Amino acid sequence: MAEFQQVADGRTTSVYQDAVRLLLLLSAASEPLREPPPSDAPADAVAVLHSQVLLQKLDFWLRNPDYLADELISRFERDGDHDDLNLARQILESDEPEVRSHQMLRFLFGAYEPLDEALSVLRTPGLVVRRRQGRPRRTAQHDYYLTLSGRAAAQKIVETVPELAYYVERSTLVADLAAGRRGSALRDIQYLQPEYADAALGTRIAGIADRARQRLRDVLIGLEREEK
C-alpha cells in the first residue's frame, strides 16, 4: 500500500479543491433517503451515495473530461440524443481535456484516489457523514450521507461562487450519465478503455483526448454522409 501512497502524495489537486469537488458531486449524485431512513443514518441526513467504488468512478469522469466526452459519444451512438454529441463536441473541441484533467491512480478495482483527507474537510463541519457497513476490521461498503448543512453549503456554492460553475455543471452531467448504475457497472464501462485497463497498478491513468477527438471527427463525418 505504501507504493500507492507514495504516488498519491504527488497530488494534482489540493485537499480543499478535492473537498469542494466531492461535495458538489455528492450533492448531484446522491439519492434521497428512503422512508423510513436506515437506522444508522445521521438525524440530519437528506441523501446518500452508496459505495466508495461508485464515488471513485463518478469522480473519475469528473476529473477526466476526455473520458467523459468519449462516454457521451457512446451514449449518443446508443440513444441518438444530439445533446450528448454537442456536449462531447464542446469538450473535445476546446482545451478542456488539457487544462481540466486531473489523472487518477490505477488500483485493484479501477480508478482510485485517497479520499480521507478531503472527506475529513467535509466531515468536520458535518457536511458529509460516512458510515461503514460490514464487520469489525472488514468493511463491506461505505455509505456517504449528505446532511442538510451539506446540501445548503453546495447550494451556496452554486449561488455565490461562479468560478465553480464548471464543477456544478459537470457534477450534474456525470450523475446523469451514471443513470443510477452501481459503481461496478461504471468500472466495467471505464475498463473498456485500453489506457485505463492496461495502466500498471499504482500509476496514473493516461488520457485519451487524441483518440476521443478522432472518434468525434469520425462520428461527425458519418453524420454528414447520412445527410447527403
Rank of each mutant, 00 (worst) to 15 (best):
M1H: 09
M1Y: 14
M1G: 15
M1C: 08
M1T: 14
A2Y: 12
A2E: 14
Q5P: 01
Q6D: 11
A8I: 02
D18L: 08
A19M: 12
L22F: 07
L22D: 00
L24K: 01
L25A: 09
L25F: 04
L26K: 10
A28Q: 09
A29D: 05
E35F: 06
P37E: 12
P38M: 13
S39Y: 07
A43S: 12
A47I: 05
V48L: 10
V48E: 05
V48F: 07
V48R: 14
S51H: 06
Q56M: 14
Q56F: 07
K57H: 00
K57A: 07
L62S: 11
P65W: 09
D66H: 04
D66E: 12
A69N: 07
A69Q: 09
D70H: 03
L72E: 03
I73T: 00
D79F: 14
G80H: 01
G80P: 04
D81T: 00
L85F: 07
N86T: 08
A88C: 02
L92N: 04
L92S: 10
E93Y: 05
V99T: 15
V99A: 03
V99Y: 14
V99R: 08
R100Y: 05
R100D: 02
H102L: 04
H102E: 01
M104C: 04
M104V: 01
L105T: 01
R106I: 02
F107P: 02
L108P: 00
L108V: 05
F109E: 13
G110H: 02
A111T: 00
L115W: 02
D116R: 15
A118G: 08
S120M: 13
S120E: 15
R123M: 13
T124I: 04
G126F: 13
V128K: 03
V128M: 12
V129N: 10
R131H: 05
R132S: 15
Q133V: 14
G134Y: 00
R135Q: 10
P136W: 11
R137E: 15
A140Y: 13
Q141R: 12
Y144Q: 03
Y145P: 00
T147G: 06
T147F: 12
T147W: 07
T147S: 11
A152G: 03
A152M: 12
A153E: 13
Q155F: 03
Q155G: 09
K156I: 10
I157L: 15
T160C: 12
T160Y: 10
V161K: 05
E163K: 14
L164C: 04
Y167C: 04
E169K: 12
R170D: 01
R170F: 04
V174S: 10
A175L: 10
A179K: 11
G180I: 11
G180R: 11
R182I: 03
A185N: 09
R187G: 03
D188A: 11
D188Q: 05
Q193G: 04
E195V: 06
A197M: 11
A200C: 03
L201S: 09
T203F: 08
R204F: 14
I208C: 03
R215P: 02
L216D: 00
R217I: 09
D218P: 04
L223E: 06
E226S: 13
E226R: 13
E226P: 00
K228T: 14
